[in-house]
Amino acid sequence: MGVQDHTINILRELEQNALKLDDSQAQNFIARIRNAKHIFLQGAGRSGIAIRAFANRLLHLGFPVSVVGEISSPHTKSGDLLIIGSGSGETASLKSLAQKAVESGVDVGLVTMKKDSSIGKLASCVLVLPGTVKTENHRQREQFSQPMGSAFEQLCFITYDAIVLELMQQLDETSETMFKRHADFE
């Protein structure tokens, strides 16, 4: 089996997982984004990379956004939204962040594979992406599965872009209007 075969298997796995997405969860998530005064985003590891890309596109759409931990992040206020990307919903640093958000009156949105996780129980909205968390790969040895949560992280990128497309439609945005908000100092 070569790289082309692996690529095709990855795309098939992602397609099967995408077919299980709950659009009502996604629409609720989008409504929370649209109503937030400020959006903070955070993830760890590869999920963190995906959520940073999402933060960038939300900025291009004109939303006030910050990646948690960046020096330019403002103080939180009631009406803000913290979006966390965590496949397991159990990452210790992200659990602590979610708890602090709740205590500060900030809504928490979670993109995860585990709705009933610790962070999921703190979240006001959860978007479940089907997949296998990195500690459960042994459960899928008999069928194709990528290692250590890769499918979740890839589906995050695709789902975040799908949310951006939906927001573009709802807000009457185009690539041209968004490009005006793209960084010009690079």
Rank of each mutant, 00 (worst) to 15 (best):
D107K: 15
S78F: 02
H182V: 02
L61Y: 13
M178D: 04
I71C: 06
M148L: 12
G45T: 05
E173I: 05
E136H: 07
P64Q: 11
K100V: 09
S88I: 03
I163D: 00
L82C: 01
A53Y: 00
L171T: 07
K180R: 11
R139K: 15
A50F: 01
N56S: 15
E153W: 12
G48A: 05
E90R: 00
A183I: 09
L155G: 00
L59I: 03
Q99L: 11
A162D: 04
G85T: 12
A92V: 14
G45E: 02
K100Q: 09
L127G: 08
L61T: 13
C125T: 15
T91Y: 06
D80K: 12
E103V: 11
H138T: 10
K100W: 01
N137F: 10
L122A: 00
A92F: 03
E142D: 15
D116M: 10
G48D: 00
G120A: 06
A162F: 06
I49C: 03
S96C: 08
V68N: 04
T177Q: 01
I51R: 07
S150L: 10
A53M: 11
L59M: 12
M113W: 07
G105W: 12
S104A: 15
Q143F: 05
D107Q: 15
T132A: 07
V126A: 03
L81M: 13
A44R: 05
F144L: 04
I158N: 08
I51H: 07
Q140W: 02
H60V: 08
G62Q: 09
I71N: 02
S175K: 03
G79P: 13
I158D: 06
L165S: 14
T159C: 08
D107S: 15
A53G: 12
A98G: 03
V108M: 12
E142V: 09
E153S: 14
S124R: 14
N137E: 14
L82Q: 00
Q170G: 02
V126W: 01
E153G: 09
V128L: 04
C156S: 12
R141Q: 14
A50Q: 06
K114I: 14
G89P: 08
S104G: 09
K100M: 04
D184P: 00
T135W: 02
L97D: 12
K180N: 07
S96R: 13
G45N: 02
L129W: 04
T112K: 02
P130S: 13
K95H: 05
D107R: 14
S66K: 11
C125Y: 06
S124D: 13
D172I: 03
P147E: 05
S117E: 06
G120C: 04
D184F: 11
A44S: 09
Q143Y: 04
D184Y: 10
S93W: 01
I119H: 03
S118F: 08
K115S: 12
S104I: 06
V128G: 01
E70Q: 07
